[in-house]
Amino acid sequence: MTDHARDLASLRDATDRLLSAAAALDNAAVTEPSRLPGWTRGHLLAHLARNADALVNVLQGRPMYASAEARDADIERDAPRPLDVHLADLRESAERFVRAADAPADWSRTVELRNGVTDAAARVPFRRWIEVALHHVDLGIGYELEELPPKFTERETAFLADRFTGRPDVPATRLTDGTRAWSTGRAADAPEVTVAGRPADLLGWLSGRRDGAALTAQGGTLPVLPPL
């Protein structure tokens, strides 16, 4: 069962960690490429701030973004800002999200995100935690997938495996880190491929952040995953 209050506490820790790490940058570093193709670190910081406000919209029953074009335009507008402006915006938007997520509410209700995706309101803090944690890694400033909290890595691996479940373009696949196991891909009587590796490598492959070279595949080749 999702504990939104616990996830909110974990989100606060992840946000503080990100803000502390980003504060060690300078204006020049903000303009340098991130690990996401086509985005600078400034794009990532701008996206994180606007995503916090977008999730406030979700919790309060408004559309997440006015449009895909408006979302992209806001990120492009804000990306070149100086570091201190990015940090203030990220801190203030994070606080707005926490206030919205702390307010008494029916956490079992269904909310709508982007592109018609729906979820329980109680899962929104975890979705925000995903954004903060993985994009901290994407900044390329020394924080790696191996440093993510183990419980986060386990939950996000399960979350991503679920996203690929039933996809006809992904073979039936069993994932394992040697301790836990997940199933994903199209339905089959038995998994066609078993993919094994360290938790960080599995998460990196599922999230498109690693190529899977550190994983082993038995019963077939490593599946090619479609973009998230």
Results as ranks from 00 to 15, higher is better:
D189G: 15
D84H: 15
L48S: 03
R12T: 13
R35D: 06
D102A: 15
G116D: 06
D13P: 04
G212M: 11
G185D: 01
R50W: 13
V58Q: 00
A94P: 03
D201M: 06
A54W: 01
L225Q: 06
A52V: 01
A101D: 01
S34Q: 08
A196K: 11
G166M: 09
S207T: 14
P37F: 02
E76C: 05
L87N: 07
E69W: 10
T173I: 13
F152S: 09
L44E: 00
V58D: 00
P80S: 06
R180S: 13
A172K: 05
R77T: 13
E156K: 10
D53N: 10
V117L: 14
A190R: 15
A213K: 15
M1Y: 09
T31H: 13
R209S: 08
G208M: 00
R6S: 11
D84R: 15
L25A: 10
Y143K: 05
E147K: 13
E95A: 15
L222I: 13
L83E: 02
P191C: 02
A217G: 12
R109I: 00
V132Q: 04
G42D: 07
V124R: 00
A190C: 06
P168I: 04
V111K: 01
P33E: 10
D3Q: 05
P149N: 08
L134F: 03
R186D: 01
L228A: 15
I75S: 04
R210E: 14
R71L: 05
R35A: 12
A158M: 09
R209C: 05
L90W: 00
G38E: 08
W205P: 01
V111C: 03
L113E: 04
A103P: 04
V132E: 04
D189C: 06
W39C: 07
D177F: 11
L48W: 06
E192N: 09
G220D: 04
A100D: 08
L8Q: 08
A29L: 12
T179Y: 05
D102W: 02
V137W: 02
A29V: 01
